[in-house]
Structure formats: structure tokens, C-alpha cells
Design a protein around this nucleic acid. Structure first.
Lengths: 165, 165
DNA sequence: GGTTGAAGCTTGATGGCCTCAAGGAAATGA
DNA sequence: TCATTTCCTTGAGGCCATCAAGCTTCAACC
């Protein structure tokens, strides 16, 4: 299957490697795997951003909205989006101005504000989800064995990446 | 292997799905695969951004630098980074001010400016590459069979995603 | 030739994202 | 009560991103 591993079109290509590809189905190196992963990730995020834009959302706004299955405080959102808390203020401001989200005081601790997704917000993120699903339908062609293998590999990949954080 | 597929911590979680996970090793659904992929991609980009920041680079600057194995025109850079050409002007301005990159007139067509990575620029992106590689060493634990399978799957994934662009 | 049109790059305006430093309000604990 | 901590916001500064408008250069055509 793995005929030619296309190399070095994204993040960390520094090598001045020879253009000749090995003819044998040799297993890819770790570096090659990371490049492939970077390419696939880039494609994914570009698609996600484009789909969100179709709904008038930036990718960060869509990310935030998708986190709000249940209400979360500003601080919790900052942790999930891995950014400064002061950044969340602005993002929520803009979403709230459009009625996609609502701030609520929490009665038992009046310092914290829960961010609640409105029905309009849920609609918006559902449209994004639907369009993503339609877009990636091609992926549906994977058979059961491939699915299991991919899920397994992705989880190991994430584990080894998260480990650093 | 795939014990429990952890669901819905990222982009498109809208479902109010039951918390109960299937006990059987059923193959993951397409939606579940996309969620796993989103999680792994997010982890990757956070790591990439953090490593670039260690070298005083934004992720976009690092991305641009890594493209410059050979000189590219501003337009070519815009195509590779999938953004407006006017955006590249500012990014290259900032990199040039730091001596990581250099603009050169192309003699045969004086409209176009080639962006050339300086030695300092190559050093910078090599440090990013090295730190990424060290970081992701955990991935090196994958055996040959896993590598081949992952490479194959990632390429198919990317193909089906790029198809949309 | 000279004009028109297209391509490549830059500038300026506008807006969103992001961090840091600083500050107000509320809770906690001595 | 007073000090400390937590949560959130504000303001300054910088980067990224798009769009509209403009400049230069090239190419093609009359």
C-alpha cells in the first residue's frame, strides 16, 4: 500500500534529502510519520476553519462553542482552549453579542460566570458538525479493520503528544 | 486494543449521546474517528506552537520558514500557507527584520521577489525540528507494522480531506 | 511603437486572536 | 477584621487574516 511516502511539505522540513524514494516498502521513519501526520492535520484544520467560516464563525469560536455541551466557567474554557483567561473574555463577548452564548452568574460563588450555549449557538455548531460530516464522508470508506487500527494509532499518538504538556 | 474510545472533547461535539460506552471492541464510527483525529491534531499543533515559541517564533513563522528549503516567491508562499498574498508581506517583513529570511529580486521577472532562508533562518527552523523530534521520541516505539499502517491511513485521510479543497 | 490587461507585491483599514500587567469583586482563612 | 487567593475584566501591544486600492512590471495585441 505505502507506495511512496511524500516527504517534506510541511512543518519541520529542513533536510536536504535526496529526491530518490526507496523502491522497497520500507517502514517509514519516525520523522516521516510526523510529517505525514502534520500534513493530514493541516488538511483537517483548513477544512474545519473553512466550514466554520461558512457559518460565520472563526475556528476558535467554533472550538469554544463545541466545548459547551454543558455550561463551563470562563476559567474552564481557558483550560480547554489552552490560553490565557483574559483571552476568553473577548471571544465570549463576540459570541454573546451574536446571541450564541450567554453569561450566567453562579449563585453559590458570585465570582465565577458560567457560559451557557443558547439554542442558536447549538444550531450553529450543529450546522458545522453536519457540514464536516458530509465533507468527510469519504472517510466512511474505511473498513472495520482500518477503523480499529486508526483509532488505536491515533490514541497512542495523542498519548505520546499529551505526555509533554 | 481499542478499549474505550474517548469521545467528544473537541471540535464538533454536539451530541447528547449516552455516557455508556459499548463494552465490545466494535469498530469506531466515522464520527468517532474524526474526533480522535481532531484530538491528536490539536495535541500536535499545541506542541508545534510551543516548540516554535521556545525559539521566539510564532507557529506561522515556523511554518513559513520550513517551506523555504528552496527559495519561493511571495505568491508561492501564499499558496502553500493558504492565505492572502498581502498577509505574506507582513510575515516576511518580521522574519526579514530578524535576519531569518531575505528578499531577492528575480532578474528575469522584476515583479517577483524570491524569499530566501538565511543561515540563521535555517538554524532556527532546525532547532525547532530537533526539539520536535526529541519531544516526539515516544512515537519511535512504534513497530514496523504500525508504521506502515499509520502512514497508509494518514495518506488516505489526507487525500480524502484535500479532495475538498 | 503605445495601449490595454494581467500578474506580483505592498499599503492601509479593520477585525479577531493572543499575552502580559494591572485592577476590581468575591470568597477563604487566620 | 485583614490578608490572601481566585475569578474575571480592562488596556496596551503585537501578530495574523481579509479586503480594497494602488504601484510596478510584463505580455499581448492593435
Amino acid at each position: 500500500m505505502v507506495e511512496v511516502v511524500k516527504l517534506s511539505r510541511y512543518p519541520c522540513d529542513v533536510s536536504h534529502s535526496p529526491a530518490a524514494a526507496p523502491a522497497t516498502p520500507a517502514p517509514p521513519t519516525t520523522v516521516q510519520l510526523m510529517e505525514l501526520f502534520a500534513l493530514a492535520s493541516t488538511a483537517y484544520f483548513q477544512d474545519f476553519t473553512a466550514v466554520a467560516a461558512n457559518q460565520g464563525l472563526t475556528s476558535v469560536q467554533a472550538k469554544l462553542l463545541s466545548q459547551l455541551r454543558l455550561p463551563l466557567s470562563m476559567r474552564e474554557l481557558a483550560e480547554r482552549l489552552v490560553c490565557d483567561a483574559s483571552n476568553i473574555t473577548g471571544i465570549v463577548d463576540r459570541l454573546e453579542a451574536r446571541g450564541l452564548v450567554r453569561r450566567e452568574m453562579r449563585p453559590d460563588d458570585r465570582r465565577v460566570k458560567n457560559v451557557v450555549r443558547t439554542d442558536a449557538g447549538t444550531d450553529a455548531i450543529m450546522r458545522v458538525r453536519d457540514e464536516m460530516q458530509a465533507t468527510h464522508q469519504a472517510l466512511a470508506g474505511l473498513g472495520d479493520a482500518d477503523r480499529i487500527a486508526l483509532a488505536d494509532l491515533l490514541q497512542r499518538l495523542r498519548a505520546s503528544l499529551d505526555q509533554r504538556a
